[in-house]
Structures are given as C-alpha cells and as structure tokens.
Simulated assay, not measured.
Amino acid sequence: MGFGGISIWQLLIILAIVVLLFGTKRLKNIGTDLGSAIKGFKKSVNDEPPIENKDNASEQLTKDADFKAEAKKETDK
C-alpha cells in the first residue's frame, strides 16, 4: 500500500506517462523555473525594504511607527 491507496506501480506508470508527454528536458526546465521562483519568493518575503538615506532613517522609522499605530486604532474600533 502506497500513498493514500496508490501503489508504487501506479506511481511509476503515472511518472512514465508524464515523461512521455513532456520529455525529460522540458521537465528539467519546469523544475528549474519552479525552484528559482520559490527561491525568489522566499527572498522577497524575508528581505525588508532598504532605507534610502541613513540621515532620514529615524524619520522613516517614526513614520512607520505612526502608520502602524493608526492601523491598530482602526482595527480596534
């Protein structure tokens, strides 16, 4: 018994059909594209936007704090 009632033989048949339909080169390209898309998404989620000017850094942080405070007030209403 395999995954959810699908045996290993059924999985191998499905894999063979997919390879016949798309070909190994196209499957490799799809995997590469999908991997780079996921990598880019993770990078954009983890990175914070850069502060443009070091002199204005405290001013920008103050604006961010004010914006968050206003948003919290609106959600509390």
Rank of each mutant, 00 (worst) to 15 (best):
I30Q: 01
L61P: 00
F67W: 07
T75V: 09
E52W: 02
F22P: 06
D64Q: 10
F41P: 00
R26V: 15
K42N: 07
K68Q: 09
L27F: 06
I51S: 06
K68H: 05
A65C: 01
G40T: 12
L61W: 09
T62L: 12
T24V: 15
K73P: 01
E70T: 05
F22A: 14
V19N: 01
D55V: 09
E74G: 00
I51R: 02
D47A: 05
K25M: 08
D55H: 05
D66I: 15
N46S: 14
K63W: 05
N56P: 00
A57K: 13
S36M: 11
K68A: 14
R26L: 15
L15E: 05
L34P: 00
T24P: 01
D55L: 12
V19I: 15
K68M: 14
D33I: 12
N46L: 14
A16N: 03
Q10I: 12
I14K: 04
D66N: 12
K28Q: 07
T75P: 00
L20C: 06
N46P: 00
S36K: 13
A65E: 11
A37P: 00
D66F: 08
N56R: 14
K43E: 13
T75F: 07
K42S: 06
G31E: 04
F67G: 03
T75D: 05
E74I: 15
T32R: 07
L15Y: 05
K25W: 12
W9A: 10
V18Q: 03
D33F: 11
A65H: 01
G2H: 00
I30W: 07
Q10T: 10
K63A: 14
K43A: 10
E74M: 13
S7W: 02
F41G: 02
D76F: 05
L12N: 02
V19E: 04
P50I: 08
T62F: 07
T32Y: 03
M1E: 04
D47P: 01
I13D: 03
N56Q: 15
G31M: 10
V45P: 00
I17F: 09
M1G: 06
A16W: 08
G40Y: 09
L34T: 15
L15C: 04
L11A: 08
D55K: 12
A69R: 08
N29P: 00
F22I: 15
I14R: 04
A65R: 11
G31Y: 06
K63I: 15
N46C: 02
W9D: 10
N56I: 10
L12R: 05
A37S: 13
D66T: 11
I17R: 07
T24E: 04
M1N: 03
A69P: 01
E70M: 09
A69V: 12
D33S: 07
Q60Y: 12
I8N: 00
I30E: 05
T62D: 06
R26H: 08
G35Y: 07
I8F: 04
F22N: 05
N56D: 14
A69K: 14
A69Q: 06
D64R: 03
E52D: 10
A71K: 11
I14A: 12
S36T: 15
A71H: 01
A57Q: 13
K73L: 08
I13L: 08
T75G: 01
F22T: 05
D76G: 02
